[in-house]
Simulated assay, not measured.
Amino acid sequence: MLTATVVNCSIRYPDRPWWETPAAAARDGYPAVEFWWPFAGPVASDAELRRLADALHDAGVRLVALNTFGGDLAAGERGILSHPHRVSEVRENAESVARIDRELGCRLHNVLYGERLDGVTGAAQDDTAAANLAYLRETIPVPLLEPLSGTRPDYPVRTADQAAAVIDRVGGGVGLLADLYHLAANDQDVAGTLRAHVDRIAHVQIADHPGRHRPGTGRIPIAAHLALLTELGYRGLVADEYAPL
């Protein structure tokens, strides 16, 4: 059965600077790591890339997934993909991500859609997102789209069906990130969602609900969902993306 061989360093080790977290992951037995975008702006500097490469090398772990730049997450932003006035940031970030991929072998990149903006129509934002996703698809190996919970009610990608509609609009080439915590928190039929969308799923993340803590602390039957994914033929990675208690 599938098990988590990846850990999300950004949420799992919040009390450490990001460059120290690969070593913590190695001590916890993970051979691979993923991050939310750890750098301050959309373009990682040479020094930041060297620090990331050195941290991974010294810890002996692989970088397998990395969020693209999502704006100021601490201030509540949840992506800029659909924001017309930030297209240049999306594309500058894509070039920076592509460089990281070339140097470190990373392939999976979660792209946060962006919350609805006041004064801009939903159609204009969706057009921007589609154009940016088409650009990302040609620039980085595997862009991912993830249904999110905990966002404004009008956030456009809260269900797997909504994510699939966006992917279909750009003609494929974008994977679905199935985060079992977000699916459950949005009152999705998680097993039904996995069955319906397994062919799109390119990455899986796990945390329990409620609380977003270690599996077994909430009500999600995570082992059963991972067994179902195995039965359905999913052979990708599974990442622990939970907050420590």
Rank of each mutant, 00 (worst) to 15 (best):
A191V: 06
H225E: 15
E146F: 01
L66Q: 10
A131K: 12
R214I: 10
E92C: 08
A130H: 15
D118Y: 10
G122D: 14
P153L: 04
L117F: 11
G211H: 01
A26F: 11
G105M: 04
N132G: 08
H197Q: 11
L232R: 12
T151N: 14
Y135C: 08
A184E: 03
A65E: 05
Y155N: 09
A123K: 15
H83V: 11
A44K: 01
D240P: 03
E138S: 15
I11P: 02
N186G: 05
A207F: 07
R51E: 15
L237V: 06
I222Q: 00
S88L: 13
G192I: 11
G79W: 01
P156R: 11
Y181M: 11
V170Q: 12
G171D: 04
S88Q: 14
V170L: 11
A65V: 02
A53N: 07
A47R: 13
N186D: 05
R219S: 14
V87S: 05
G119F: 03
G233M: 11
G114S: 04
E20C: 07
D208N: 10
I100P: 00
G150R: 04
P31V: 06
D168A: 09
H109E: 02
W37K: 06
A184H: 08
L136Q: 04
G41S: 15
H83K: 14
L237R: 12
